[in-house]
Amino acid sequence: MTRSVVSLLIVILLFCVSIVFLREEAGPLVRTRLLMGTVVEIRILDEDAADFDEAVSAAFSAMAGVEAMMSPHLSDSEISRLSAAEKRLSVSAETREVIQRSLDISAASQGAFDISIGQLIHLWGFAEGEPQRPERKLIEETLAETGPDALAVSGTEIIKRSSDIAVDLGGVAKGFAIDRAIGVLAAAGVRHASVNAGGDMRLLGDRGGGVKWRIGIQHPRRPQQILARLDLADVAVVTSGDYERYFEEEGVRYHHILDPRSGYPADACQAVTVVAVDALTADALATAVFVLGTERGLALLNSSGVEGMIVDQNGQVEMTSGLKEIISWP
């Protein structure tokens, strides 16, 4: 009698102990967090996805770190302090790198992309959450201080051409954060992952087994539909659209992507999607091309060695040649 009781107990013990192992089974690891003003989702599709829990947390922390350094909304971030500085400020290597690359793209886009328009953005109230249309005169005055040569990198310092210049990395900081997160995941050994920050994303590897990620591009005028689909791996995809953040005043819609040359929301495009090797580049170029419009935008995409798709203000779609091979229409 005791023999069978003992065997029964052993079976039960085995049962209980292994429930621990059971829990680990199956499925992708998906985690979301509210960061940088949007919903960030990290998805890991590796077979042993559950092992990467810590890596995911580290990736989120890295992104939060970028936000702490570069957010204009946090008064002691490097960027805020830079904007408040008289003439120059010594900043971290990361901030320097982001600023340098932004200045490069600023020059390449002839000012369509500009990180010195912090004051202008502040005027429009997008940052504070109380958007309003500023007076023309104010806009013009503010514009005077901005431009591709408003900032310069010198050693460990950033030098401002004038003390009124406020820096806004809104067009690139998110991309940089995404790149950082991917770096953390890759270093941890993850092979198949996506980091998606509210529609701006970067992919690590494919979905596994050679299957590419199917990336839907939001239709700029029909919220429930996608415009097209791209089959991708190992790249960053960023879309800028006039439908994301806007306010209406006297029946006119003003969206948040300002043309640094006019001071008003850019109206050449409805949406631009850029596919590039890293998210910072994709993020900056998406903004730049959105401002530039189809013709010069395509030229910029080609000269930058990235792929992209432009939906102009009439809904007409143009794209780089590389994209034509991997795009499919619903």
Binding site: R214, Q218, V237, G241
Partner: peptide, 9 residues
């Protein structure tokens, strides 16, 4: 019911 994995917007 969706034919894509992630949405870029």
């Amino acid at each position: 019911e969706r034919n894509y994995d992630l949405l870029s917007r």
